[in-house]
Design a protein around this nucleic acid. Structure first.
Lengths: 110, 110
DNA sequence: CGGAGACATATGTTTTTTACCTATACTGGC
DNA sequence: GCCAGTATAGGTAAAAAACATATGTCTCCG
């Protein structure tokens, strides 16, 4: 019964892409440690990326640097940066709410 | 796009019931401020309570103190206390994960 | 040179969680 | 008698997550 933040993978994705553009497979490896999970579902990751692209949060292009399987490099758009900022604000609130819960939990502990 | 902790209403329920037994309708009023939401869905609340009871996390009995509609008073069982403890531990972790995210977010802000 | 395994992207389906809506019953006050 | 507040409960739709499978490329190894 692990407590998890809803859709937390999304802001993590955006954060990583703000640091530098990368492709999906790399995100697949880099997201989990930040989320505190073993692994990220592959299918859902690519679906999420395409959804974010539809909404103009990320943009991608195929890498033509020949060798290796076709890969798409994603980068954060300006709208994406804004979305990340609002995720951050919202996560700060959520963290405070959990903090209040824990304070109250510790208070009346017995 | 509010960041919410998955199933957060449940540990809040348990916390409130640890403080003192109460009935569902009272929880309905007391949970939302702790969760940082406007309201808690009525139907889901009672469903959750019955599920928790099936699992031996809470126990309830009808109040026969006549006036008013029939009401059920819920209290936390020993198993419930244990579950609350493990929720708390898990929420502490989740809070730390979000904290790390925010630190990293603030670092490379630009 | 054939096959295993890592890299890379993607779709389909099921389950779980949440949201939304409706139903029922008792009581007090107007 | 009816309306609003108290109290519990079911049904169903939508959203999110988990689980499973497909397809193609390239590298390394025997």
């Amino acid at each position: 019964m692990r407590a998890r933040v809803e859709r937390f993978a999304e802001p993590v994705l955006l954060l990583l892409l703000r640091e530098r553009p990368m492709h999906g497979y790399e995100l697949l490896e880099r997201v989990p440690p930040l989320v505190g999970e073993e692994r990220l579902d592959v299918g859902n990751l690519y679906r999420a990326l395409r959804a974010l692209e539809e909404d103009g949060i990320v943009a991608s292009e195929w890498d033509a640097e020949l060798p290796g399987p076709a890969k798409r490099t994603y980068r954060l758009t300006d709208d994406g940066r804004q979305l990340l900022d609002s995720w951050a604000a919202s996560l700060r609130e959520a963290r405070a709410v959990v903090g209040d819960f824990l304070t109250r939990y510790d208070e009346e502990r017995r």
